[in-house]
Design a protein around this nucleic acid. Structure first.
Lengths: 138, 138
DNA sequence: ACCATACGTTAGTATCATTCTAATGTTATT
DNA sequence: AATAACATTAGAATGATACTAACGTATGGT
């Protein structure tokens, strides 16, 4: 059975992955950092973060923004899917940069169940082209 | 070099593929048919078709809607990408129906150049799981 | 204590895709 | 001529995305 896709848009996905990769509990992100990284104005970043908070994926305290448990899980799923298709693209002969970009366009759309199957089909690499682990957890 | 992605939204993609598969020069589609197939009201279908016309992908004459040359090309590219990923999913163990649905979610986003490479990586099947040809033309 | 700087937040606006219902044309068939 | 079938326009709503300008708040230096 295929689980419903992550209910996030591309921008929300970008924001989620950004926070997931650039922060941890000791160093949460500031709104300005997010805005700069996403190359949008602070109010725009703020509205994306607000949507993430509304969806229970992010949380903010004293201007520090961090992911919730649910947000961390969602991000992990997105990254697993990302690295799977990124690996497929690279194995096919696409450059690392392009592979990463294209994977980013679909990793929040495609369900993790199928990514797991695809991963097997492409000989179960344990790391993405950048060397990051393709965790099969969850 | 990677060509810019087809500049269409999901709805426009659905409409494009619908017209591309259900019509030909002798039997163009009526708006009502499109609306029924897309399960939206006639005005909604109309607005999608209008956007396709604005983008130079469709044309209408006497209420008959058909694709332009550019629309036919775009649809072909989308279908090639569709069938490639559909094949990948099926080879990986995903059911035909699910494979088709998921392929529909990404076939208008991913460029044909990379689909061609992926197709080779998955042993160059010449037909999609439904038996339709994966044309490598264009 | 005061001011400036840095930052978050709100207000207001705009665009685009998507959707609907209700109303209005238009055409063709009876 | 009337009706039916269809296309089209009008009007409205929502949600994502984006901006600038303004406002609030807190911190650090003078």
């Amino acid at each position: 059975m295929v689980t419903a896709t992550n209910n996030v848009t591309k921008r929300e996905r970008d924001c989620l992955v950004l926070i997931g990769e650039k922060s941890d509990s000791r160093f949460p992100m500031r709104l300005h950092e997010i805005a700069e990284n996403m190359r949008v104005s602070a109010p725009t970043a703020f509205s994306v973060v607000k949507r993430l908070m509304f969806k229970g994926l992010a949380d903010s305290r004293d201007g520090m923004i961090m992911l919730t448990e649910s947000g961390i899980e969602t991000t992990k799923r997105i990254l697993m899917v990302h690295r799977t298709y990124e690996s497929l693209f690279c194995q096919s002969g696409v450059s690392e940069d392009v592979a990463c970009l294209e994977a980013s366009d679909i990793d929040f759309i495609l369900p993790i169940e199928n990514a797991k199957l695809v991963l097997k089909r492409i000989d179960s690499p344990s790391n993405c082209p950048h060397g990051k682990p393709i965790s099969t957890v969850q």
